[in-house]
Nucleic acid binder design. Structure first.
Length: 471
RNA sequence: GGCGGAGUAGCCAAGUGGUAAGGCAGGGCUCUGCAAAAGCCCCAUUCGUCGGUUCGAUUCCGACCUCCGCCUCCA
């Protein structure tokens, strides 16, 4: 079976075929963060999803070029730069660094390229010039340059690939009515925003005067620069379908005349939103977790990653602290099994056991069915534990099983749990307890166990002697 | 109002026109001096409701109920 992925363009699960004639190289663009604040756990759901897809493509043998933009100029950013009396670079640099630290904590592979909008102004201007030259973009009386959806459609292009748009049925709400710009049509969107006093020092020169890029144009300019005018995959959160991605398609396909059968992006994928405690995240409800909030509650990036990877990317997922705590036990079961295999397998190098890999691949090929994939992993855990308990696993068999898990984990990216170094005080208590047990002084040995527990360690007696684990 | 998604055990969740994966919690057992966040085993005659098609439906069709998301800030 081949890899199949849902495509928002067709609303169907389709066989994934790269544009590369050799079928090897894959260009993948993900809409990255707007660096105006700490990213929250909902944002990271999307980034963990894109990381999962990239890793699975690599597992399937593709040579992936992963590009993720950093939006470092935008209304909210400019407002905060003014409020804090700082510079754009200093402000966005801080949140970009924080974002990447969180990204790393969640064990996401760094994209190969992290282009910043402010470093692509010439490409953005060039793209807008093409649109102006084709008559699809116009400079309004307010000095800003807008994209004309009417003109675009007049060129034979379709607006509304990703969502079924019904302009008449749309609620033209307060947000549209309150728009301060002087557009020809309400649906037109800004490509270049004319400099206003509130922008402070944030502006660049352009053929239309000083100003800054609109929100959508950066992604068209940067994705095409780094991945070519047509590329394979474009990902983002579901909220980006409209208007952001729709407008990206319009800008790109409006600026370049694509030959029949070619288009800006072959395959669009969107991750569903995360709910927190049953509700959409919002600051007023206080259900707004940043990664550091959760790390502060004692959860690890690895545990959070594991929880985010349990849900299918297109399914709405309810994030709860209880759920996170529950997953800890599940992950521990897996770690325990892998740890035992590691002990037994030693350094033996053998090819991976096929059973787990086949079940895993079958599940993941089906639009990244992680639930089925985890099902396969845990069936394998139970089976492996059974053999382990019965002493039925030889060293090469354990090594093969471990190798299979390692391949799977190249995709899940959980790695090994960080084992805390055992402090001398704890080690001394373990030894004292063991000595008391040998002397059959169980009162003393139980006291030692209680003391260990108070220090946050749990002791387990195994055939190989006592073992301590962090509580 | 328009568009889209979802309802499967206490909770999370996969799946199929032929009789329900997996995880958490719970129960039993094993190991143990006792234990264990160690291991094994058990745990839905039933898949929102009502009809229809069918030898057979949770799976297909129709209606209804409920929940959620998007509709120009948003991952």
């Amino acid at each position: 079976m081949a890899l199949q992925l849902f495509n928002t363009l067709t609303r169907k699960v389709e066989k994934f075929t790269p544009l590369d004639p050799e079928g090897r190289r894959v260009g993948m663009y993900c809409c990255g963060p707007t660096v105006h604040d700490f990213a929250h756990i909902g944002n990271f759901r999307t980034f963990v999803f894109t990381d999962l897809l990239r890793r699975y493509l690599e597992f399937r043998g593709y040579d992936v070029l992963h590009v993720m933009n950093i939006t470092d100029v935008e209304d909210k950013i400019i407002k905060r730069v003014q409020q804090r009396h700082t510079t754009l670079r200093e402000f966005t640099g801080k949140y970009e660094a924080e974002f990447l630290a969180d990204f790393d904590a969640l064990q996401c592979k760094r994209p190969h390229l992290l282009p910043r909008a402010t470093e692509h102004i010439p490409e953005i201007v060039a793209l807008i010039e093409k649109l102006v030259a084709r008559g699809i973009a116009y400079q309004a009386a307010d000095g800003s340059v807008y994209f004309s959806i009417e003109k675009y459609r007049g060129c034979g292009c379709q607006y509304g690939h990703l969502v079924n748009l019904n302009f008449d049925g749309m609620r033209v709400g307060e947000r549209v009515a309150s728009d301060e710009y002087e557009k020809e049509a309400v649906a037109d969107f800004a490509l270049w925003k004319k400099r206003v006093p509130e922008d402070g020092e944030v502006f660049w020169p352009s053929p239309w005067g000083e100003g800054r890029p609109g929100w959508h144009i950066e992604c068209s300019a940067m994705s095409m620069k780094h991945l070519g005018e047509s590329f394979d995959l474009h990902l983002g959160g579901e909220d980006l379908m409209f208007p952001h991605h729709e407008d990206e398609i319009a800008q790109s396909e409006g600026a370049l005349k694509y030959p029949p059968g070619r288009r800006f992006v072959e395959h669009w994928m969107h991750g569903s939103h995360l709910l927190v405690e049953g509700k959409k995240m919002s600051k007023s409800l206080g259900n707004f977790f940043t990664l550091r909030d959760l790390l502060g509650k004692g959860f690890s990036g690895r545990e959070i990653r594991h929880l985010l990877l349990k849900a299918h990317y297109r399914a709405q997922f309810n994030f709860t602290l209880d759920g996170l705590a529950g997953e800890r036990a599940s992950l521990a079961r897996l770690d325990e099994c892998v740890g035992k295999l590691r002990e037994l397998a030693d350094e033996v190098v053998v090819p991976p056991e096929q059973g787990l890999l086949m079940a895993f691949t079958k599940a993941m090929d089906d639009d990244l069915n992680v639930s089925a994939a985890w099902g396969a992993v845990f069936e394998w855990v139970t089976e492996t534990n059974r053999k382990l308990a019965a002493n039925q696993l030889t060293k090469p068999q354990a090594a093969a099983a471990l190798e299979a898990w390692n391949r799977v984990d190249e995709v899940f990216g959980l790695g090994t749990a960080k084992t805390d170094a055992v402090p001398a005080e704890v080690q001394a208590l373990v030894e004292a307890r063991q000595a008391a047990r040998k002397a059959k002084d169980f009162k003393r040995s139980d006291e030692a166990r209680d003391q260990l527990k108070a220090l946050g360690w749990v002791v387990e007696d195994t055939p190989k002697g006592p073992r301590v684990k962090r509580l």
